[in-house]
Amino acid sequence: MDISLINLVPLLMAASTPILLAGLGELVVEKSGVLNLGVEGMMIVGAITGFMAAVATGSPTLGFLGGALGGAAMALIFGLLTQGLMSNQVATGLALTLFGLGLSALLGQGFVGLKPPATPKLPVPGLSELPVIGPMLFRHDLMVYLSLAAVAAVWAFLRYSRPGLILRAVGENHAAAHALGYKVTRIRIYAILFGGAMAGLGGAYLSLVRVPQWTEGMTAGAGWIALALVVFAAWRPVPLLVGAYLFGGITVLQLNMQAAGVNVPVELLSMSPYVVTILVLVAMSAAGAAAGAPGSLGRAFHASR
């Protein structure tokens, strides 16, 4: 296989989209002060529900919708337990991942080996005909464009909109936000649902576009990568995009290098995406030291008195 940018960039964009979507959702959740470690579980449930919806209806669009709903349903369980019943967020998140892995295996029993309807590419008229840049950037499916739009939307939402400001305030100091009269629990539930839907979309992208078929445990740690990216990106959307593309890019590159038979031990190649992504993001977050974790991250909020 030819290792060139024109080949590599479209592949890396597609490879990065699942973790970008899931990471973006988790970023919003954590900005609201909630630590949901169930990203992996929500992703894989999104992967199977999306797959099921797409196979049943024959429409990839409805498939993605099904994936988002499946992820959001999982998130709702997490939200009710942690926000309503004040359960421990770390334990509940871990349980959600285990539950999601089991549930998806159960749901997916009749779907192993099936082929989902193909997700069409949507070349951008005009731009996709440009030399070099066209095939690299403008011949993707809808979800790739949407994920990039989501990065911009989340960035603008958090930075410029009033609901975004309130969300950040809730995550920064929930007691103070409550004292000012903001509905901490409700805002967090919304954020958790959004995070679940985004993780579900990411999962559906795996089963409908990336692979595309259903296999048990097919997320293979992508949810955990998304979680780590959020931390290393210091809870900022744009560095998250960089991190996700870097990770996806090196994954694709090292696969191509393996295929090309480059004389480097396979183990080194396989670990390179993790090592490089962590190093780059650590350097980035050290440079922008001002942004830290949201002040109330992972702390349960109970409106007493």
Partner: peptide
């Protein structure tokens, strides 16, 4: 004006 300041440090 609250006793314990109801402010958000990061903002």
């Amino acid at each position: 004006v609250f006793q314990h300041f109801s402010l958000f440090d990061a903002l």
